[in-house]
Amino acid sequence: MELELCAASYSSALKSNHHPFKRVELCANLEQGGTTPSPGTIAATVENVDAECHVLIRPRVGNFNYSSEEIQVMQQDILLAKSLGAKGVVFGVMNSQDRFDLNKNLLLLEAAEGMQSTFHRAVDSSSAYMKDIQSIINCGFQRVLTSGGGTNVEAGKEQLKELMLSNPDIEVMIGGGINTTNVKQLYDYIQPHAIHFSATDWVKDESKNMYTTNYLETSLSKMKEILAQL
């Protein structure tokens, strides 16, 4: 089984060096589901983090039905991540009917040639989950990050179990709501290829500037508690 840490900052990504993570999914703005991190964050992570750096490619918050202009931005972000030494990219495009968008995903896969590609939890919004999982496989993604079509892994565990029993031709990585109280039971029940979690705490920003807000940061103690269950 492989482990992936979802890290919303360089400082969070560095905490993965304390444990044998296979990958770090690097992002920004985890409070809103994650967006593409800065070039500086990618470069620092590639240079100083032991785990493979896989970069989230998501140009904005909200749905995963991207315009042609947004696809162009995503292509450029993929090429930039590749040039900075990232091992892989993480993305997912759905159409207006909440189905896998073949043409737009193929454009992004072309840009990602030579890198590993993970289709992320956009698939959990699918109106035809199992059919879209098969489309993801057919397109050549190496991995799918999914909560089984549910709002979290607990809600989607039956469909995830069914997916694993079907022997999918893709690495299935479960994520969404993984914590210290459920990680062992979910792993034992689903038997996934990989587990993805963030182990975050809220950091309270009590400064007086006009943009003050709270944000999520990986907690080393939470990370250790989750890993201790496995």
Rank of each mutant, 00 (worst) to 15 (best):
K161V: 10
W202R: 06
Y215H: 12
N179S: 14
G177N: 02
I174G: 05
A199P: 04
N167F: 10
A199E: 09
Q159H: 13
M164K: 15
F197D: 10
T181H: 10
K161C: 08
E171V: 15
T146Q: 07
E217C: 09
P168V: 03
L160N: 08
Q142R: 06
G140F: 07
P168D: 02
Y187K: 14
C139T: 12
D205V: 04
S219I: 00
Q191W: 00
K204N: 12
S219H: 06
W202K: 13
M164S: 06
L186W: 08
N214L: 00
M164E: 03
S221M: 11
G150K: 12
L186V: 09
T200K: 14
N167L: 04
E162I: 11
N182Y: 06
E171M: 14
H193E: 06
S219Q: 08
G156E: 06
L186S: 13
D205G: 11
G148K: 08
T213N: 08
T181G: 00
N138W: 01
L216G: 00
M164F: 02
L165V: 05
A194Q: 15
F197E: 10
G177D: 02
V144Y: 01
N214D: 15
E154W: 05
K204V: 13
S147K: 11
K204F: 07
I137P: 05
I136G: 05
N182V: 08
H196C: 08
G140V: 04
N152H: 12
Y215P: 00
S221R: 09
R143Y: 04
Y215L: 00
N209G: 12
L163D: 02
T212M: 00
S207P: 04
T200V: 14
A155K: 13
V183Y: 03
A155V: 08
R143V: 02
N167A: 09
H196R: 15
V203R: 14
S219F: 01
G176N: 03
Q142A: 12
L165N: 15
L165W: 02
N138C: 02
G175S: 12
M210R: 11
I136W: 08
T180I: 11
A199T: 02
V172N: 01
I174M: 12
A194E: 11
I178S: 09
T151P: 00
M210I: 14
S147G: 13
L145H: 08
L216S: 03
I190K: 07
N209F: 15
V144W: 05
S221F: 06
K204M: 10
K184I: 00
S166R: 13
I190E: 01
F141P: 03
I190F: 07
S207V: 01
K161H: 09
Y187P: 00
Q159F: 04
W202E: 12
Q191D: 08
S198V: 04
T146C: 06
L163Y: 04
L220Q: 13
S207N: 14
F141Q: 01
E154H: 10
D201L: 07
A199N: 03
N138Y: 04
K157A: 12
I178R: 08
R143D: 07
S219K: 09
T146H: 02
F141T: 01
V153M: 11
N152F: 00
F141E: 01
L216H: 02
